[in-house]
């Protein structure tokens, strides 16, 4: 299977603190990769190196190579905005803009220069369908996004990310603020989305990783301990620390 992203010798420091230690990971195209591990082990930090959101943190230092389709995204000739269009992100707390549902989804395309009304309508519908939200909101497109439920807001955020046509979608504990039913809906959606997108998700919930991901990476204290096919990692881990974690002996 071809990899869309390849990460090698990745080290990240927050000031003096060594948050990511010499990590290596391949992310195969059109799969779901899950990051698991105890709190504070560096999952979010790693995820945010993939679309350079860590650039915002003062005093951060990143070394190593992170490639998207063979291009190093930290090289000087990388355009960060183009990168972030290709690598979209969904956050832990649903964070729709305080605007209408339509405007939320149309935001990215509009600011990237699409003015044509018909074209925008088409993008909004396609993105909302892609996020399995269309049927629920098609008659409320002008209502405030804030009037939606938490689960709907999160799917709206997914639709907003899809609207700029990314290749990779990063999700940082995107269901942890949601109720079980909304969570299941999003899990179902993720399985659907991997037909067209590559998904990398952080989760605190091992069952979720087992349910939806193809590959799982186990993080511990800034180290990437083990990466494998999900089934294999959960049934037959190589590293004893992985086994301890998935059998619930710590974390």
């Amino acid at each position: 299977m071809t990899s869309i992203m390849e990460i090698e010798r990745l080290n990240l420091h927050y000031g003096e603190f060594h948050a990511l230690k010499n990590m290596k990971l391949d992310i195969p195209k059109q799969t779901v990769t899950a990051f698991i591990g105890p709190s504070g082990c560096g999952k979010s930090t790693f995820l945010r190196t993939l679309n350079r959101m860590n650039d915002l943190v003062p005093g951060v230092q990143i070394d190593g190579s992170v490639k998207l389709d063979g291009q190093d995204i930290y090289s000087d000739d990388t355009d960060v905005e183009t990168l972030r269009k290709r690598v979209g992100m969904v956050f832990q707390q649903p964070n729709p803009f305080p605007k209408s549902i339509f405007d939320n989804v149309a935001y990215g395309p509009r600011l990237h220069g699409i003015k044509d009304k018909a074209r925008l309508n088409e993008i909004v519908e396609r993105s909302l369908r892609g996020a399995s939200l269309w049927e629920e909101v098609k008659d409320l497109l002008n209502k405030s996004a804030l009037s939606l439920s938490g689960g709907q807001q999160q799917r709206l955020c997914i639709a907003r990310a899809l609207a700029v046509e990314p290749d990779v979608l990063l999700m940082d504990e995107a269901t942890s603020a949601l109720d079980p039913i909304s969570t299941l809906k999003i899990e179902e959606l993720v399985r659907e989305l991997k037909k067209d997108y590559t998904i990398v998700m952080v989760t605190h919930n091992m069952h979720q990783a087992a349910r939806v991901s193809d590959r799982t990476a186990f993080f511990l204290n800034g180290e990437l301990v083990e990466t494998d096919d999900t089934e294999k990692l959960f049934s037959n881990p190589v590293d004893s620390r992985t086994e301890d974690y998935i059998t619930g002996r710590f974390g």
Partner: peptide
């Protein structure tokens, strides 16, 4: 979160 949402869209 609002700021990050904007940046993550590639703005």
């Amino acid at each position: 979160e609002q700021k990050e949402a904007g940046l993550a869209l590639g703005l």
